[in-house]
């Protein structure tokens, strides 16, 4: 199976019971190459999460085609299971594919170590801080062993300091795994710090306004000229000046 994600002319219209159908996506074409990190930025409610669900095969497009390898999804709120401890939450990704409980836990423990959560193996989600919960959710997503991971606003619930840290552990965890990332964010700067390429979407129905290519290793410094230039380009594409 090809490990390139390819969306060709994808449109999506949401059928609603007591209202007019809602056009969410309008002829979006995107490619995500292996190992690449692609950030999707756009105004709130423009359909970014819908785009992720389409890419993950959880929705079918109204028009157009989606060609994708299996993609693991990490939704905005992380969505850990309150009844399970950190190891079992992470192990869900493997047990979903039929790996035995014991083997799944073993592999999960390795990933918790990599993400600096080894001391919290037995902690339930409510005992973890917001940042640790997101780290655990990311560990779970990476454990799924999919060639692409889709991260929906992974840091939205974190404070500014945790976000900077989060960008660091995200890139270090990804650096070891050589996976392509589809990153949805409303934080333009974050996109410029983390992504190889930023796709700017219009308000709903979303279409691609422009793509901004970046170079060099991530995470980039927030104050680097490249990040500042990309930030300018993205903001002007969004119609925001400042």
């Amino acid at each position: 199976m090809a490990s390139t994600l390819q969306l060709t002319d994808v449109s999506f219209t949401r059928q609603r019971r007591s209202a007019q159908p809602l056009a969410v996506l309008d002829r979006i074409s995107l490619t995500l190459e292996p190992g690449e990190t692609l950030a999707l930025v756009g105004p709130n409610g423009c359909g970014k999460s819908t785009l992720l669900e389409l890419a993950c095969g959880l929705l079918s497009p109204t028009w157009g085609t989606v060609q994708a390898p299996p993609i693991a999804l990490m939704p905005q709120r992380g969505l850990l299971m309150p009844w399970a401890n950190a190891v079992d939450n992470a192990a869900l990704a493997l047990r979903a594919e039929g790996v035995s409980k014991r083997a799944a836990r073993e592999t999960a423990r390795d990933w918790l170590v990599r993400l600096g959560l080894s001391e919290f193996e037995d902690a339930r989600p409510h005992e973890l801080s917001g940042g640790m919960r997101q780290r655990l959710a990311l560990a779970r997503t990476l454990l799924a062993g999919r060639p692409i991971v889709a991260l929906d606003e992974p840091f939205a619930a974190l404070d500014a300091i945790s976000r900077i840290e989060a960008a660091r552990w995200l890139t270090s965890a990804l650096g070891e795994s050589d996976r392509a990332v589809l990153l949805v964010t409303h934080d333009v700067e974050e996109a410029a710090v983390l992504a190889d390429r930023v796709v700017v979407l219009s308000p709903r129905p979303a279409s691609v306004v422009t793509q901004v290519q970046l170079t060099g290793p991530v995470p980039r410094l927030r104050t680097s000229p490249e990040v500042l230039a990309a930030r300018e380009a993205i903001l002007s594409a969004l119609g925001v000046t400042g």
Partner: peptide, 29 residues
């Protein structure tokens, strides 16, 4: 159960019965 948790489990490749066993049954206890 949060419907998004179901999406996550699906994106991990869990079929209907496995989602029931791993996610839904514990949530219903």
């Amino acid at each position: 159960i949060d419907p998004e948790l179901d999406l996550v489990a699906r994106s991990f490749g869990a079929g209907r019965l496995r989602r029931f066993r791993l996610v839904e049954a514990p949530a219903a206890l």
